[in-house]
Simulated scan of single mutants.
Amino acid sequence: MIVGKNIHKYFGDIQVLKGLDLHIKRGEIVAIVGPSGAGKTTLLQILGTLDKPLKEKDYELSINNISLKNISDKELSEFRNNHIGFIFQFHQLLPEFTALENVCIPAYIGKKNKKETEIRAKELLEFLGLSHRIDHKPNELSGGEQQRVAVARALINNPSVILADEPSGNLDSESAKNLHELFFKLRDKFGQTFILVTHNEELAEMTDRKLTMIDGKIV
């Protein structure tokens, strides 16, 4: 499903990823843990095609048997929109739009049919217990509700991979627990692969597999 081999990354003179290898199966929920500065978020950004490994190294990176090494930036953008969903710690919802509109944005970017997109967005929000909040803007929602809107947005294009960077880091303990349980319900219903960067040990222990990063490598 996801294969990375010999992944290197530098920021200036600082080497952040040091020949990292990774293999994740379809439908797995995998946690990536480790101390701050270990390279977890950098790895997630590379897997999400938001950044690229050091091209001078002979690396491999593929998702769904599609090699991402030599495709153009336009093709990479289209791949990202169709195959990858993102969940961030601070939601990143657009404040001027309603919950429904926020969820629809990735589909609109992908030029999906407006009517079909809104139907799917409403179905996702209903599944996430937010059918009564679709016309509310982010400042009218609780932190947990905002994060569930962000989850629906990540799912709108039916991506094969969901990448989450500290998804519960800004939530109270009850909302975090609910979000963690939600990931498993989503995997069972929609079959996505989840990769979660987290400092939350409870979430990490719930996942199918926990990968520990130290000093730019998985140990």
Rank of each mutant, 00 (worst) to 15 (best):
M1N: 14
G110M: 01
K217N: 14
F86S: 09
K55P: 15
T198A: 08
H91M: 04
Y59V: 01
A121H: 09
N158K: 14
E126I: 03
K5R: 15
H132E: 14
A204Y: 12
I134Y: 02
L94H: 02
D21F: 03
L17D: 05
D58R: 00
K189Y: 04
S131E: 15
K25F: 05
V219H: 05
F194L: 08
L182V: 09
T193K: 01
K74Y: 12
T41V: 13
D58Q: 04
I2C: 07
M1D: 13
L100C: 04
L20H: 03
L186Q: 11
I214W: 01
E202F: 15
S67M: 06
G85W: 01
F183H: 12
G85Q: 03
L179F: 02
T98K: 06
N70K: 13
I119L: 12
S168D: 11
L171V: 13
I105M: 09
H132L: 03
S175I: 07
L171F: 07
D58A: 07
V103P: 12
A38V: 14
K40P: 10
M1K: 06
L182C: 04
P53M: 05
P167T: 11
L125Y: 08
P53Q: 07
S160M: 08
I218C: 12
F11C: 02
M1Y: 14
G85H: 04
K177Y: 12
L211N: 04
P106Y: 01
K189Q: 15
H23L: 09
G129W: 08
A176D: 01
P138R: 00
E56V: 02
I105N: 02
L47K: 04
D165G: 07
V16W: 00
D51Y: 07
I109P: 10
G216F: 07
H180Y: 06
T207M: 08
Q92V: 07
D165K: 03
I109W: 06
S131H: 06
L125M: 11
N70H: 10
I218N: 07
E201V: 14
V33D: 00
E201M: 11
Q92R: 14
H23R: 09
F127M: 06
L179T: 12
E123W: 00
E60N: 03
K185T: 14
E181Q: 08
L163S: 05
I195P: 05
S175M: 05
H199M: 10
L100A: 01
K114R: 15
L196K: 03
N157Q: 02
G27Q: 01
D73P: 12
L155R: 00
I84C: 08
R148S: 11
V30I: 13
S62C: 12
A99N: 01
Y10C: 05
D215Y: 10
N81L: 14
